[in-house]
Structure formats: C-alpha cells, structure tokens
Design a binder for these strands. Structure first.
Lengths: 187, 187
DNA sequence: TTCTTTTTTTGACTTTTGTCAAACAATCCA
DNA sequence: TGGATTGTTTGACAAAAGTCAAAAAAAGAA
C-alpha cells in the first residue's frame, strides 16, 4: 500500500502503529463525476489518491464554475478547513476520472490520533504543504502574465494538461478560455 | 493588555495560565523600517501587533520588490512556515511605521505550550485564519479585474490605503503602479 | 527651509486579455 | 450509429493593463 510506504519512509511508526494506520484507511473506487465533497456540507472524509484525478471548484457571483485546485495521485484529497474545523465547505470536489482512493472518516481519524499520535504530526505536515502550495499559487497569480502562468502549469503538471478539459485549466489560471486557446496555439 | 483580553475571550484559561501567557510576551517598540524578519533567516519570533503596520515582501527574478502581505494591529506578525518548521524564510517583514508589538521567541513559545496547552490550539487557529486569508486572496487574484481588486482592498483595508505607499499596494494587488494610479483617478 | 530623492501622475503608445458570436470538433448516450 | 450536447477554436473587435519617459508632487535630509 502506497500510503503506508510513504508514511513508513518519513515517520518512524512501530509495526503495530503501521498496522493500525493501514487498517484505518479503506480503499474506495470513485467513478468519474462523483462528488467527494459538496459546497455547504461538512467534510466527513479525507482521501489519499492512488489513481485518478479530482478538482475542487465553486460558483462565483455570475454562476461561473471556478476551479481552485487539482488533486493528483499521491496527494491528499481534502477540503481542509471543512474537515479540520468541521464547518461547511465553500467548495465542491469532484472526480474527473474513475479514481481509486483510500479514505478515512473524521471519527476514525480522531481515533487514529489516539492510537498513533504521530498522525497529528502527519496531518500538520500535510496542512503545511497545502499552505505552501497555496502561497506559491498566490504569488504566481500576483506576478505572472497569463502566458507565463500557463507555461509554468504545463511544466509542473504535464499530466493534468493532458487529461483535463481546457476550460478547467483556464478558470484555474484565471484566464478566459478563448485567450488560453490562443496562448496554447502559439506554443 | 489587548492580547490577553482576546485570548481570555475565546479560550478559557485559568488565572495562572493567563498570568503565564502574559509574562511570556514582551513588549517591544519597533521603529519604522526595522526588519522583523529577513529572507534566508530562520524566524525566531512571533509578534502580536498593538500599534503600527508591517509588510512582508520578496524580490522577484527582476529584483522587483513584491509585497505579499500587510500586517495590521490586532493581528499576528509571523513568517509562518519559517517559525513553525524552523526553516529559512523566503520573505522579509519590515515595519512601515513606528510600531509596538508583543513578542515571544521560539524557545519561549515551546515553553508556553508546555505550561499552557491551550496555546497549541490558539496557534492552530491562527494558522488556519492565515490559511483562510490566503485562500481568499488567491481567489481574488484569480477571478477579479485590477479595478475590482483595488476596490475590494479599499473596502477591506481602508486604514492601509491611507497609510501605505501606493507602489506597495500596487505590487500586492499585482497591478502596475501607473495602471493603479489611473484606476484610482477614476474613482 | 532648501535641496535632493523618492513617489505618483500623466501622456502617448503597445501589448495583453476579454467579449461575443459563429464555426468547428469532440464526446456522450439512447 | 447519429443526433444532441458540450467543449474548443477562430475572427473581429473592445477593453484592460502594461511600458516608457517626462513632469509634478511629496517626503526626507542637511
């Protein structure tokens, strides 16, 4: 199990702790278009993506669908604020492809914290990684032109470019779809 | 002491804990232009701003000074990743005005965690608030025009508008200074 | 205060990005 | 398979935003 291996590598868990961790996460097959999370609901699950692709999005004042994040294999699938604070989420998360994840619900996570205290640290580290990603994204939106943002995105997420509808990438980068189409043509 | 009152309001600390908390933070006068934090250094302090104003910034590839955040009275002055993980910071933090803050260093903070466990929660909550702010900022950069960003900024931070150089606001909003000057003229 | 330096504004112009609508292409199911 | 639907590209144009340079204004320092 990929997740356990990752954990093993960075956090020194005993065999028992590893066992408990492995059992806490249940495999789940998520068909494309399934909502992992819905706006207004409290997040009850965290997932670890084995295979597939997800995106988070919300609707702006003009009912435009705005993508805020893409979730790739090997990363944590979470509506962070909602899960951590158990408050209603502002965004949706939906599977873009048939996906396979490992899930744990909030209650089980609290249980896991008790059994394997290291999970508090793991959670903290994941949260910090997400914060960092967001900081980088914010700086890119602040300082780069549309073309530069797209080029950087292609570099950093070649897989996503291949597999995701252009309009989602456009909204994620804050670029009009027609403009992005033209930018792409030039490259 | 403002900080203690805030804490008192939201977290139920015993008198002893309040005492310990109050003693852990030392008042400090920070003259304008003083660096609270420097790029490349590990953050050793967290501050709580009583009076004054700070900004964080970094230099981009073209040596442009890019403002990433303004810190107002009543908020926490921190280079979050650097302080939390004790790794070198990527940004500078500098006082824009003569300021008064309450500071605590890393070691004392660890000590405070032991004496007053509630501080772990306080820290977590502050971190989450910062994450939220960043999320909002990111969405604004992604979805709003330069004019809309400026208008929203004026609404949300009327104090900052009055007191900070326009070029810092321009870089914070990701707008050219000449463009922002024109936007402002129209309003 | 006066001189210097820094910051902001402005003009003339260019480039980037967005808008609208239509054509085209791809995808989805029934 | 074949409409129907959804997504992408394109053209013609408009609006937004950036660039460069100079002037004006403001802030700092001696």
């Amino acid at each position: 199990m990929n997740l356990v291996e990752k954990i093993k590598k960075f956090y020194k868990l005993t065999e028992k702790e590893l066992e408990a961790s492995a059992h806490a996460f249940k495999p789940a097959a998520i068909p494309a278009k399934t909502y992992f999370m819905e706006e207004g609901k409290v997040a009850n699950h965290v997932g670890f993506i084995e295979r597939g692709l997800f995106r988070s999005f919300f609707y702006d004042d003009n009912a435009n669908d705005i993508t805020t994040h893409f979730f790739q294999p090997g990363t944590v699938l979470i509506s962070m604020k909602s899960f951590n604070d158990q408050v209603p989420a502002r965004e949706n998360i939906v599977a873009l492809e048939d996906s396979e994840i490992y899930v744990i619900n909030h209650e089980e996570m609290m249980e896991l914290y008790k059994r394997v205290p290291a999970w508090r640290q793991i959670t903290k580290d994941v949260d910090e990684m997400k914060y960092n990603d967001l900081m980088n994204r914010s700086i890119q939106l602040q300082t780069l032109t549309a073309k530069e943002r797209y080029e950087l995105f292609c570099q950093n997420y070649p897989e996503i470019i291949k597999r995701v509808a252009l309009r989602h990438i456009a909204s994620y980068l804050g670029i009009d779809i027609a403009t992005l189409s033209r930018i792409r043509k030039k490259l």
